[in-house]
Design a protein around this nucleic acid. Structure first.
Lengths: 147, 147
DNA sequence: CGACTCAGTTCAAAAGGTGAACTGACAATT
DNA sequence: AATTGTCAGTTCACCTTTTGAACTGAGTCG
């Protein structure tokens, strides 16, 4: 069996993982996508320690996934809202969840969302942007580059 | 603006994150997809401490992402190979990388792979499995369930 | 006035990650 | 026969991160 050798397959993934590569961050983003915005709500929803939550939220703001806005001046109240960049990450989260549904048997209910466009329940699938066929490792080979 | 409320959007993501939710694991999987199989090669490629690498590999084996096989009895040599479950996760990694390419400007080169099916460079896109339209947060709404 | 809410900060203890050195089985070289 | 090298880890001492719980502080409500 031929071994793949994607020697150029670098960095984009690492940089992404650098932002979202821990237990909490993806879940914070899923909550944000669900409409959670305040510090207290994230804390309640996830059970993450407030200390860590502060760090994660700041990190996400720093990296442009969330925007922190003051929605009440007196008393000072903040809201964390997804940026376009954050919103664009949601399908990736859905792809992860779809994979989880498929492979990790569990009694816990899968997340269920309706796709307004087609009316059916949305399930994520990762396809080639060019030919729209589902991407699979077996259909990939290294792309040689000049220089 | 209407706030989404995906109260059912739970668990599948959390369970997935439970397996791959740290800095190293996704990169180990990317290496595995590239054809890296031995302990030493993972170690060299990633620069992760051997200690941590041992734990991560064991964890991935435990969770059915990799299979550990003895390919030489004398001396004892092991190989970590992706299972079907692991292979099926690769498109998710590609979706992450595609997002990284789009949003995280950096001098580092993106990973580049050819899609044999269409001959073009493969770029991941997440679509609805039902209608094949790209998934976007704005097209989603909670799915109400009986009971 | 006292109780409550939000959005954190502070602190000690526990857990997890790091690099560097070590083990042990074998193979190849001198 | 002795030394060096490779693979696949383990061990250890150190450092950073996470955790939980308590505390702060600004302001509101009754």
């Amino acid at each position: 069996m031929k071994r793949n050798d994607f020697s150029q397959w670098d960095c984009s993934l690492a940089r992404t993982v650098d932002i979202i590569g821990d237990w909490w961050t993806p879940l914070i983003l899923r909550d944000a996508a669900r409409g959670v915005t305040t510090f207290e709500d994230f804390h309640q929803s996830l059970g993450v320690s407030r200390n860590t939550l502060t760090q994660r939220l700041n990190r996400l703001v720093e990296h442009g996934m969330l925007e922190k806005t003051l929605y009440s001046d007196r008393p000072k109240r903040y809201r964390y809202v997804m940026t376009a960049q954050g919103v664009d990450f949601v399908p990736v989260l859905m792809a992860m969840a779809a994979w989880g549904d498929k492979w990790i048997a569990d009694t816990a209910p899968p997340f269920r969302v309706r796709h307004k466009t087609c009316g059916a329940e949305a399930t994520a699938r990762v396809v080639c942007a060019c030919c729209e066929a589902p991407l699979a490792l077996s259909d990939l080979e290294p792309l040689d580059e000049a220089a």
